[in-house]
Every structure is written in C-alpha cells, then in structure tokens.
Nucleic acid binder design. Sequence first.
DNA 1: GAATGATCATTC
DNA 2: GAATGATCATTC
Length: 222
Amino acid sequence: MMNSQPNTIEELMQRANDMAGVTLGDVAMEHNTPVPANLKRDKGWIGQLIEMELGATAGSKPQQDFLHLGVELKTIPIDHNGRPIETTYVTVAPLTNIQGLTWEQSVVCHKLSQVLWIPVEGDRSIPVGERRIGSPVLWRPNANEAHALQQDWEEIMELITMGKVDKVTARHGEVLQLRPKAANSKALTESIAEDGTVKLSNPRGFYLKINFTHQILTNAFN
DNA sequence: GAATGATCATTC
DNA sequence: GAATGATCATTC
C-alpha cells in the first residue's frame, strides 16, 4: 500500500510532522507490512516504509525522491542523544566518463540541494517496531556546508580522475567520504587506471559523515 | 552489474 | 565506542 504523491512541500511536511512520535510498528500496520525482527537482512526497510507513508515515487532512478518538489528523502538512525548512528549514503560515485564533470553538474550536488531528514530511533536494543520516528528536518545546505561538500567532492573526484580510486579511503574528506557500495568486495565496475586506460574496481558510493549530519540536526532543533 | 533503500561487523 | 570496509534485499 502506497500513499499518493504530495503535491506541495507544505503537504509533504504536514505528513512528515504527522509521523513524529509514531512508532515504526504503527506505520507498518497502516500499510499491512510485517515488521522484521532486526534489520540484518532488511537494511532498507525503514527507508522504504517511510517512502510509502510519505508517498515518495518508488523506483531506482538516480534522482531525488520527490523530483517535482526538488526534495530528497533520507531516514537517519539516531541514538538516545539525537546523534546519528550511521553515515548517510548519498549516491553511487561515477568512476568513468568524468572528464569535465563539475560539482554543480554532479548527482551529489543535486541530491543534497534539498533533503527531508527523518530521524528514527536506531538503538539496536529497541525492537524495530517500537522505534519512534522523530520530527522532520527540511534542510538546504548553507554557504559553509555547500563549500565543504564541494571541496571534498572535488578532491575525491580529482583522485578518481587520476586513476587513484583504489587509494581513496574513508579518511579522505571532512564531511563527504567515499566508501565501498556493492554486494560485496568482489563486485567490480570499470574505473580509470593511472595510465588513463580502463581497469576494474570495487564500486564506491558517497556518504555523509556523522559529524556533518549531526550538525544539521542540531542546527534545526536549536 | 547498477541503482535504490541502507545497516552490519570487524577493526581501530 | 567510533569509524572504516563489507555486506544484504530488491528491481530491472
């Protein structure tokens, strides 16, 4: 069961605000969806449940969840202090055909231009169905945040362009990092070699670091 | 394999 | 306890 697409940001925010304080179990019941005992084999379950509730366009397209509203949806697990428990996946990193690609043209920039954050209790000691949804945060990066993101993105993409993708670790970047994003460490995709030819590497994704998303949530509630 | 949704689990 | 590298389910 899927709610209809919201027509305006106001409508989207009203739905998001209506979820605040509600448990995942309550939302799941509305959608006749069984609640998993844990997320080991259902890592995307919460995200997909919230998509149903808010009427996000289901699909695997590399674009914002609410394209007509210019909004990307992200659920984010938080601990009892409101600090994010996990980094936030943004998108797959392009490893080929990237000559001339600018920050402004990048999928990272587009997806992060406006994000609706839905905090959800993520402590593993709380049964999934009893975890409560928090107050939503509609965020647009301010000048400092946009600059930090662009800096990291440009530094990482430069290394990829130079054929050094396999030398980039999660330690690169202040707010944005590159990490594996694949079924497992054996998965391969084309990338650029140091001599400019094509080679194979483990697919990577861009992730937002915890300190960055924590600041976003903190700024919104203070 | 590639894209979505992410969290798990081992290592620091 | 936090962060990095590894992994899971699903769709096409």
